[in-house]
Design a protein around this nucleic acid. Sequence first.
DNA 1: TCTTTTTTTGACCGATTGGAAAAACACGAA
DNA 2: TTCGTGTTTTTCCAATCGGTCAAAAAAAGA
Lengths: 229, 229
Amino acid sequence: MTEHFQQTGLGVAKGASAQKRNRAETKTRIRFAAERVFAEYGYSGASFSMIAAEAGLPKSNIVYYYSSKKALYRVVVEDIFNVWRAAADTIHPDNDPLEALGDYIDTKLDLARTRPYGSKVWANEIIQRAPIVQDYLEGELRRWTEERIAVIDGWSAAGLIRPVSARHLLYAIWATTQHYADFTHQIRTLNDNKDLSAAQWEETKQAVKSVLLCGVAVSRGQNCSVPGT
Amino acid sequence: MTEHFQQTGLGVAKGASAQKRNRAETKTRIRFAAERVFAEYGYSGASFSMIAAEAGLPKSNIVYYYSSKKALYRVVVEDIFNVWRAAADTIHPDNDPLEALGDYIDTKLDLARTRPYGSKVWANEIIQRAPIVQDYLEGELRRWTEERIAVIDGWSAAGLIRPVSARHLLYAIWATTQHYADFTHQIRTLNDNKDLSAAQWEETKQAVKSVLLCGVAVSRGQNCSVPGT
DNA sequence: TCTTTTTTTGACCGATTGGAAAAACACGAA
DNA sequence: TTCGTGTTTTTCCAATCGGTCAAAAAAAGA
């Protein structure tokens, strides 16, 4: 069997035959089913039969498309990492610091809302000491983090923001935004067992930006305004 | 067999016989072993044999003291919750807001350092939608959270802090402090695969307080100082 | 059409799981 | 000693696990 290593999500290369298109669709369907099951039951708690049931396919079909549980899991983890990485493009020397960080927080909170399962899988993987994707951490994540820290330090040096620890600011942003995905259930319980409404999500964005970015601004009014959406 | 429901940790009621003392010690040993194993492998990934090996006891011994995996797990989860609850005693109307919140952050970061496994178990349980301790969330956690929010709102109303969303501030503190426990491995990897030194932990405390509390203070100098330790 | 390749599916396997059952052991009270 | 109670340890089991395999079915190529 030839391997395709089709990394991308829903899209498929144009010109693909009907068979290949269907193949990609099936793989994607399995991937999202797996993301949900891995998130809710952890790597060990998730079984092929659960993923198969979630995807509406027989068990052996899962094995056919992803040769092992580990391989399927890795694809899921890498996917959410790539999505997050793209969200941080806004942290760039040319951008306005407060606006850039505000946009980053907004985007990550949007992802917490739309892709909570991916975030949970990532959290699980890290909690368990990254048994599957440690190479990713030491390679891409490390490089990517140092780059962003350099940008923020640059803003500091240019006097565009107060001198803060770029690393810990980044960690605080990660922690807080991902909290709204990973701890959805706790937040829901503390919200009378109701999911956050659209208005509450807006409120959340404003509050998170207010808490995390007020300490960053070089000056502020009494109400410490941060860029809205 | 008479049940004891011995909730407490290391201590044992005075006057206890040698046998009872040994019983309590064994139970505690099992509990901490279980905490480590549950943290590193998740509920499903943890097996009696792993916990037994960690505790240095035969497998059936675990079942003898905690009649099921679920029961043992519940004890572990409740324990870390009680420790965290005690840490928040400082959030009290009579205290100075910045000092109280600063102390809370300091204590929670100390716990992130000394009790990282408990935090990870809690995170896992919430991520998986609290299948075991949902009653805890709807009872004690909900009541306790609303109380703290009321205190912070009181500070706001009295003009002691800027008007911030008490709920989201609390969530940000939880998220960030627990991040240093749950994501220890990621932080370690981004620190050249070395654990944080004592100095780096101090730096972390200052940075976290600076980021989270600067937006709370009613006024600040250019360097936005927060109470140190 | 016939052939070849890809996809679907159910039957099956050795290993491991949580936990029940009971035998073996320790030890103070009688 | 003998007994009874609490503890330790071994043995065993049904269920489930990840994954293989081969046959059936479908699709593509000739």
